[in-house]
Structure formats: structure tokens, C-alpha cells
């Protein structure tokens, strides 16, 4: 498939994929990064993404799913525009990682894997993100925020909300209805 033919990806990403499959000694090596980049653009790995990636690599959709479901960053349902990933692994836990998670839950009104009803934020408790010496740390999409304190949480959210074009109402608790599961589910 070339970028000119029907693609669900933007022309830029499609062109990037064309280059990606040509880069490796074996085409299939492009699979894992391709899935991640596709998710970055589309938001999640929809059936259509799986089908197009399968076709681009020349493997079956089953093969793509076998691989995709293995990697914890890849998801099959939409997340929020800003996916907040709070590390609670040992180094972060020792320095209050769970307090950070609690605060995000309170502010957003959603739990682990929940999405705010406006779709701006989703929340995830994640494993170690490699910021142990600057704990507690989170990632919002790919951005790191480290040496956090619970009181810094509202400001972080406001910043992203502004970026998303949804300025908050000034109250710290967004009070939106939870869609996600209970904490630690």
C-alpha cells in the first residue's frame, strides 16, 4: 500500500509508514512502532487501524492483534485527548505516588482507565516509567512531569485543559461524572 491509496492515516503518517516498512531488513520489524504511531494519530487501535497495518506489513490481522495486545501502551478503545499515566511503582510509591493518583482521581472524577465525559482526560495507573530518581512522576501522553506533589495536580490539569481549548471553570474539582472503573479495578 502506498500513501496515495486509501489510507485512514494522514498523508504525512502514511508516507512515514511507507518509509518505515522499507527501512528494515524485514518488513515486519516496523510493526510495533507503526502501531504506536498509528495510535498517536487515531487515538487507539481501531479495527480499521489493525486492518491497514496488517496490509501494510503483509501479515494477517490476527498476527497484528497477537502482537498489539501484548504491549501495554497499546489500547483498543479511545482514551482521553490527554492520557494521564501515574506511576505508582516502588520509587514513586515511596514518595507519594498513590497520593498523586488519588488527587487525579478526585480532580477528574474517574478511576484507573477512566475517561472524563468531555473526552479531554483519561487516567491510568502505570508501572515504572523510568523517572525513579525524580519521583513521584507521571506522563501526560509522552510528556513527563516529575517531583510532583498533590497540590500541583490542578495546575497540570488546567494547563492541558487550556491546550485542549477547554478552559476550566476555576474550581479545582471538575466534578464530572466518572465513566471509568473503580480505582484499582
Amino acid at each position: 500500500m502506498s500513501s496515495e491509496t486509501m489510507s485512514i492515516f494522514s498523508p504525512r503518517l502514511a508516507a512515514r509508514f511507507d518509509a518505515l516498512v522499507a527501512k528494515y531488513p524485514v518488513k515486519r520489524s516496523a510493526l510495533v512502532p507503526m502501531l504506536l504511531y498509528a495510535q498517536d494519530e487515531i487515538g487507539y487501535l481501531s479495527d480499521a487501524v489493525i486492518a491497514e497495518v496488517a496490509e501494510r506489513i503483509g501479515i494477517t490481522e490476527l498476527d497484528v492483534r497477537n502482537v498489539a495486545t501484548y504491549y501495554s501502551m497499546l489500547r483498543f478503545k479511545p482514551a482521553g485527548k490527554y492520557n494521564i499515566q501515574v506511576c505508582t511503582n516502588i520509587s514513586c510509591m515511596l514518595r507519594g505516588g498513590y497520593d498523586i493518583l488519588d488527587r487525579f482521581q478526585k480532580e477528574l472524577g474517574v478511576g484507573h482507565k477512566g475517561i472524563t465525559s468531555d473526552g479531554v482526560f483519561s487516567l491510568e495507573e502505570v508501572e515504572c516509567i523510568g523517572a525513579c530518581c525524580w519521583a513521584p512522576a507521571i506522563q501526560v501522553n509522552y510528556d513527563f512531569h516529575d517531583e510532583l506533589k498533590p497540590e500541583l495536580v490542578p495546575g497540570i490539569l488546567e494547563g492541558y485543559r487550556a491546550k485542549a481549548g477547554f478552559p476550566g471553570d476555576g474550581s479545582t474539582s471538575l466534578g464530572r461524572k466518572a465513566e471509568g472503573k473503580a480505582p484499582h479495578a
Binding site: T60, E61, L62, D63, R65, N66, T69, Y70
Partner: peptide, 18 residues
């Protein structure tokens, strides 16, 4: 035929049909 795969990982791993 390659109609069966393994999906997810760890204790959630599951055999999945095509």
C-alpha cells in the same frame, strides 16, 4: 492455517481465533 493466536499477556493471555 494459522487461525489461532495468543493475545494479551501474563495471566490474561488467551487463545484467540482469527
Amino acid at each position: 492455517v494459522w487461525a489461532l493466536g495468543v493475545q494479551s499477556r501474563g495471566v490474561r493471555s488467551v487463545i484467540t481465533p482469527n
